[in-house]
């Protein structure tokens, strides 16, 4: 069975790669199998983990047996019924006459998610980032335990340069995204510096993306040459 699975995986991998030569039936077959199996897999996972695992087991908890042979019981969680009702209402979209009712659960989901995300993003992605950008440039005062007095501690040249890059990059990048004033003169020049920082950021991000895609290809090459054919020692 293991040999068969390895051959099937190799057959499908090569089928997908064959598209690089040209579109062909082998590729189409591999693609269709991938899409079909993915859809089936996710349906099964969502059914067993959400509908059965969370909902059914939540309302009708299974009795568990611990290592000592004792029965471990759990209380039913009837709040799950609210979710089940809302989930069922969403399916009413399939009946055009009363499809409008499906907006209620959608409104509930959007409201809850917005409320949660607003706090999370405001705290983690805004306030903490603003806080991290406001920093001393050349040094800071630290308490000297020997004298119990504050002493100035200067940063290294590399740290000062790094801090300057961060501050200038953040400021000019924000200026670029300020569209209420025309980008001309000193303001336009600052925005242009911001573009350079943004481009460097995109370049670094693109480089990482290439690295990631190459990693996937290396993984497949390793599978074909090592796991399948055993050509690599």
């Amino acid at each position: 069975m293991e040999h068969f699975a390895v051959w099937v995986a190799a057959f499908l991998t090569l089928g997908i790669v064959s598209f690089l030569y040209k579109d062909n039936p082998w590729y189409k077959l591999s693609e269709a199998i991938f899409v079909g199996i993915s859809a089936g897999y996710w349906f099964v996972v969502l059914f067993w983990d959400n509908i059965y695992g969370k909902f059914w087991n939540g309302i009708f908890p299974e009795e568990l047996i611990d290592s000592a042979g004792n029965v471990v019981t759990r209380e039913p969680d009837y709040w799950l019924l609210v979710g089940a009702v809302l989930g069922t209402l969403m399916l009413l979209r399939l009946i055009p006459k009363i499809g409008w009712i499906s907006r209620w659960p959608l409104a509930f989901i959007i409201g809850c998610t917005s409320g949660l995300y607003l706090i999370n993003y405001f705290s983690s992605n805004m306030m903490r980032q603003v806080e991290a950008t406001i920093m001393p440039l050349v040094g800071h005062w630290v308490l000297d335990p020997a004298t119990s007095q504050n002493a100035f501690s200067a940063f290294s040249g590399a740290d000062i340069f790094s801090n300057l890059v961060l501050v200038i990059g953040t400021f000019t990048g924000l200026v670029y995204f300020y569209f209420s004033k025309e980008h001309r003169g000193a303001f336009g020049g600052t925005a242009k510096v911001g573009i350079f920082f943004i481009m460097i950021t995109f370049g670094a991000s693109f480089g990482y993306t290439v690295m990631s895609r190459m990693s996937l290809l290396i993984g497949r090459a390793d599978f074909l040459l090592f796991d399948w054919l055993g050509l690599v020692r």
Binding site: M214, L217, I218, A221, D222, L225, F226, L231, V232, R233
Partner: peptide
Amino acid sequence: GIAVSLPLF
């Protein structure tokens, strides 16, 4: 493909 495969050897 060659650049990815040959270094494995």
